[in-house]
Amino acid sequence: MLPSRAVTGTCLHLAVLILCFRLAAPQKGRKKVVHVSEDDSGAVVVQTAPGKVVTHRGGTIILPCRFHYDVSAHDPDEIRLKWTKLVEPMSFEDVFVAMGVERRAFGSYRGRTALQEDGSGDASLIIRNVTLQDYGRYECEVTNELEDDAGMVNLDLEGVIFPYHPRLGRYSLNFHDAQQACLEQDGILASYDQLHEAWLEGMDWCNAGWLQDGSVQYPISKPRDECGRKETPVGVRNYGYRHKDDERYDAFCFTSNLNGKVYFLKTYRKLSFPEAVQACKKNGGAVAKVGQLYAAWKIQLLDKCEAGWVGDGSIRYPIVNPRSRCGGREPGVRNLGFPNKKYKLFGVYCYRSTTSGGSKAAAKEGAGKWKPLQV
Rank of each mutant, 00 (worst) to 15 (best):
V54I: 09
F67C: 11
L271A: 08
R237K: 08
G291D: 00
K298D: 00
F21T: 10
P219W: 01
D156N: 10
C280W: 09
E93L: 06
F254K: 15
A362G: 13
C326W: 15
P322A: 01
Q27N: 12
A288R: 14
D148G: 12
Q217Y: 00
G347E: 05
A361T: 14
F106L: 05
K342S: 08
V101L: 11
F21H: 13
H165I: 10
A286V: 09
Q374L: 06
V46D: 02
K31D: 00
S215F: 00
C227P: 02
Y263A: 14
Q47C: 05
H13P: 02
G327H: 10
M1I: 11
D148F: 03
D149V: 02
A15R: 11
K369Q: 07
R316Y: 09
Q133D: 07
V53R: 03
K281L: 03
A286K: 15
E117K: 02
E247W: 01
V142P: 07
V375H: 12
Y138R: 04
G313P: 04
R352N: 01
F346W: 15
P322F: 03
P3D: 06
A279K: 04
S221C: 12
K369A: 14
W83M: 08
D40N: 04
L12K: 06
R112M: 12
P64Y: 15
L265P: 09
P223V: 01
S191T: 15
G9Y: 13
E38D: 05
E88G: 00
F264P: 00
V46H: 02
T55L: 15
N335Q: 04
S120C: 09
L271R: 14
T60G: 08
S314C: 09
R334L: 07
L168T: 08
G308Q: 13
K32A: 09
L81G: 03
R80H: 02
A367P: 01
P372G: 09
R104E: 15
S272F: 15
C140Y: 09
A150T: 06
P89A: 14
D246R: 01
Y218W: 05
A114M: 14
N321I: 11
V46I: 06
V45W: 03
Y351W: 07
S221H: 05
G159P: 01
G347S: 12
A295G: 03
L271H: 04
R22E: 00
Q27E: 08
H165S: 14
L23N: 08
V44E: 03
R66T: 07
D75H: 13
D149C: 04
N340F: 15
E78Y: 02
S353G: 13
G308P: 05
E247A: 13
L345V: 00
L19A: 12
L63H: 06
E78Q: 04
Y218I: 03
F21K: 13
L373I: 01
R66E: 04
I62M: 06
Q133M: 10
A15E: 09
L336I: 00
H56T: 00
K222L: 08
Q374H: 06
Y164N: 11
K244H: 15
Y351L: 10
V262Q: 09
P233V: 01
K369E: 08
F175G: 14
K364G: 10
P50F: 14
M203Q: 07
M152S: 07
A98V: 12
K341T: 01
S191Y: 04
G328W: 03
C65G: 04
